Simulated assay, not measured.
Amino acid sequence: MSNTINVVNPEQAQRKIMVVLEQLVADYSSFQEEIPIINQEFPADEESFSVVEEIELLTTDLRGYGNQIKYSGAIQDLHKTLTTLKNLPILETPSLFKLYFSNLSLFPKTKQYLQRLDYLKFLLIDWLEQAMKTSARDIKAS
Rank of each mutant, 00 (worst) to 15 (best):
Q32V: 11
Y65L: 13
N6G: 14
K109D: 04
A136Q: 06
H79S: 13
Y113H: 01
G64S: 08
F101D: 02
Q40K: 13
L82G: 02
K121A: 06
P89I: 15
Q130C: 09
L104Y: 00
L96E: 03
L104T: 02
T84S: 11
S30G: 01
K86N: 14
Q23V: 10
N67R: 10
D45I: 09
D45N: 12
Q68A: 08
P108N: 09
E53R: 07
E41Q: 12
T83L: 15
T134F: 02
A44Y: 00
L85E: 07
N6W: 14
R63Q: 13
S95M: 03
T59D: 09
K140Y: 07
I35P: 01
T81Y: 00
V7M: 15
D61K: 10
A74T: 07
Q130W: 02
W127I: 15
E11V: 14
K111V: 08
L99I: 05
V7K: 14
A44P: 02
L21K: 03
E54K: 03
A136D: 07
E33L: 15
A74L: 05
K70A: 01
A26I: 05
L106F: 14
T4F: 04
I55P: 07
P36A: 12
H79I: 06
A136K: 07
Y71F: 04
L114M: 05
F97H: 10
Y119A: 11
I5A: 05
N39M: 11
L128H: 00
T59N: 10
L24P: 00
I125H: 06
E33C: 15
P108K: 05
L91I: 07
P94L: 00
T81P: 01
P89C: 13
N9E: 12
A131R: 12
H79D: 15
T81Q: 00
K86V: 11
Q76D: 11
I38D: 12
A74R: 01
E22D: 03
L21F: 03
E46Q: 13
Q112K: 11
L124N: 06
K111P: 00
E33T: 15
E54M: 04
N103S: 11
Q40C: 15
A141M: 11
S72Y: 01
Y100E: 04
E54G: 06
A13Y: 01
E129K: 11
E46T: 07
I69N: 02
V7W: 15
Q115L: 03
G66A: 08
T93P: 10
Q115W: 00
Q130I: 04
P43A: 03
L128S: 13
L117P: 00
Q12G: 01
I35V: 15
S50C: 01
A136W: 03
N9P: 04
E22H: 12
N67D: 08
Q14K: 05
E41R: 10
I38G: 10
K70W: 05
F107G: 05
T93M: 07
K111L: 01
L106D: 09
M132I: 15
K133W: 02
F42D: 15
W127S: 13
L99C: 04
Q14E: 09
L62K: 11
S50A: 09
L88F: 04
N87Y: 05
Y71Q: 07
K86R: 09
K80C: 05
I17C: 01
N6S: 15
A13F: 04
A13M: 06
E56Q: 13
E33Y: 15
D118Q: 11
K70T: 06
Y119V: 10
K109G: 00
